[in-house]
Nucleic acid binder design. Structure first.
Lengths: 215, 215
DNA sequence: GTCTATACCGGGATAGAC
DNA sequence: GTCTATCCCGGTATAGAC
């Protein structure tokens, strides 16, 4: 609508003048899509906003992914890969003599993913679209993969896995709610926030406000 | 688009021919809105679909609520009232000699709200819209109210309240995911579902599939 | 590989009759 | 209290040039 540098920036990368390969562009656009879908949801997001956030034109986004729906599917696919990748890395990391057991490491890895803007929110949005003919299927498949990770790779029993998943869903919810915006202003909220991010509070407080989505 | 009885039905009430008061209509429309917003999200839902589900015309829905945004705000307000109402009733219910302690009663009350179609999903959608200027504010306020209920009325400590909330978020997620659609077909999913609805499984399995949202 | 121009449609909102 | 007709904007997708 206005100039290209107006507002939509999100994951806008260093603009080296060089022409990128379409794979590089895809990756770049997916990063941008994560922030936009995360903030607005699947239907609320526009391909134009994604395009501006990525620094390309709207038709090009459609051209590269075929459709908005495909872009969303690619985006949640990427998010799930990152998520499971982070979990596997945390699982493989050294224990440091009981100082940080697996559970704690995985939990922290989950929270650390807030650095990938929009990742948690986009996944949460996808999980709510179970009725959608294609997205619903992909979302269920992804969710089941996470469950499998907890049960088979991490070796939790069903109850432990459930609690883990539950804490994760709460964290995602709080991020999507942007409850961080009220942190400090309302004692209830402050307490709630503290209870949910017992460790890493300062880090979370530093990263989250940065992801401004009021574009 | 086609005839009124085509497909959009959801909470369509007994059609007594009589003219309703606008308050009755509002209530009726909110019920319908719950199912549509729940299935499609705020942006994905259309006022037309809500209208058809309620058996009225699209402009009338807008007329009664002023805007789609207002309709959504009214809808989540209603959902929160029902939620807290159900919690308070469960809190006040008799203990039956340790047979069903408060925690269990509240948990079951939460699950029972699946009978109000779309309630959990709509709230979950609202919670993800923290970036929205008006919806975000309302969602945070509602979430904080629930937290207050757990802490002040129910008397939980911060950690207990957090766990409670977490389990609730997981339940909402599973409902939105419509994981019930895969129950029985995939052993992983079956196990996950069982772990999350330890009691009341038959009831849940009976109610959820009914809420078909592929309209 | 990427853009501009544009077709096309769906959806929220308004006007106004009954 | 409720409808029909309609306006108009915004958003996806396509055509086609560079």
């Amino acid at each position: 609508m206005t100039s290209a540098t107006a507002s939509g920036r999100a994951a806008e990368p260093e603009d080296t003048g060089r022409r990128l390969s379409s794979d590089e562009r895809r990756a770049q656009i997916i990063l941008a899509a994560l922030t936009v879908f995360g903030a607005r949801g699947y239907e609320g997001a526009t391909t134009d906003e994604v395009a501006r956030a990525a620094g390309v034109s709207q038709p090009y986004v459609v051209r590269l992914f075929g459709s908005k729906e495909n872009l969303f599917l690619a985006t949640i696919g990427f998010a799930l890969d990152r998520l499971l990748g982070a979990f596997r890395a945390a699982l493989a990391a050294p224990d440091e003599g009981g100082e940080n057991p697996v559970g704690k490491r995985i939990g922290e890895a989950y929270v650390d993913l807030i650095e990938v803007r929009g990742l948690h929110q986009t996944l949460a949005h996808a999980y709510l679209l179970g009725s959608h003919p294609t997205i619903g299927v992909a979302a269920r498949r992804g969710f089941a993969e996470v469950w499998r990770f907890f049960r088979d790779e991490m070796g939790l029993d069903a109850d432990e896995a459930r609690s883990f998943l539950a804490e994760g869903m709460l964290i995602s919810t709080l991020i999507g709610l942007r409850i961080v915006d009220d942190y400090g202003s309302d004692p209830q909220i402050t307490e709630l926030f503290r209870a949910c991010f017992p460790n890493k509070l300062p880090h979370v407080l530093e990263v989250l406000p940065r992801s401004e989505h009021r574009l």
